[in-house]
Computed example of a mutant assay.
Amino acid sequence: MKKAYRIKKDKDFQAVFKKGKSYANRQFVVYVLKKENQHHFRIGLSVSKKLGNAVKRNEIKRYIRQTFLELEKNLSCENDYVIIARKPAAEMSFYEVKKSLIHVCKIAKILKNDKK
């Protein structure tokens, strides 16, 4: 994922947490913050050490990034997203992660069209 598509600074994470809205299911919490005059969405990931070792945490982050890349055309480009993985995400395959994230996105009404 390109650097321009990532949220890295703590200040940006805190802004999304404080001003954004949260939506959740059992596996993920998604915070959404609308930002005007932004040409593409940005994504921040949070995976706790409680979910497993570094290999497992990085695998979960790869799955989330890949899902958002596949949904890129259906996502609103003026938003910042912070995704927090919960415990059940550690035992999920890529397709289960994708299905769960699409479910949360539908709850949040951030998908432009619900064809996927």
Rank of each mutant, 00 (worst) to 15 (best):
M1Y: 14
K2P: 15
Y5T: 13
Y5G: 05
R6N: 12
K9C: 05
K9L: 13
D10N: 15
K11V: 14
K11Q: 15
A15E: 15
K18H: 09
K18F: 04
K18L: 10
K19T: 03
K19F: 08
K19P: 00
G20H: 05
G20K: 03
K21A: 07
S22A: 13
S22M: 13
A24I: 02
A24T: 10
V32N: 01
V32D: 02
L33N: 09
K34E: 13
K34A: 11
E36P: 01
E36F: 01
N37K: 09
N37G: 06
N37S: 13
Q38C: 03
H39I: 07
H39Q: 14
F41W: 14
R42Y: 06
R42F: 08
I43N: 07
S46K: 08
S46Y: 01
V47K: 05
S48A: 14
K50S: 14
L51H: 10
L51E: 08
N53L: 12
V55H: 14
V55I: 15
K56R: 15
K56E: 15
R57C: 08
N58R: 13
E59W: 15
K61G: 10
K61L: 06
R65G: 09
Q66D: 15
T67C: 14
L69A: 13
E72S: 15
K73F: 00
K73V: 01
S76M: 07
S76A: 09
S76I: 12
E78M: 02
E78R: 05
N79T: 00
N79R: 12
N79E: 01
I83S: 03
I84S: 02
A85I: 09
R86N: 09
K87H: 11
P88E: 05
A89Y: 01
S93I: 03
E96F: 02
V97N: 08
K98Q: 12
K99S: 11
K99D: 09
I102M: 05
V104M: 06
C105I: 01
K106E: 13
A108N: 02
L111K: 08
L111M: 07
K116Q: 03
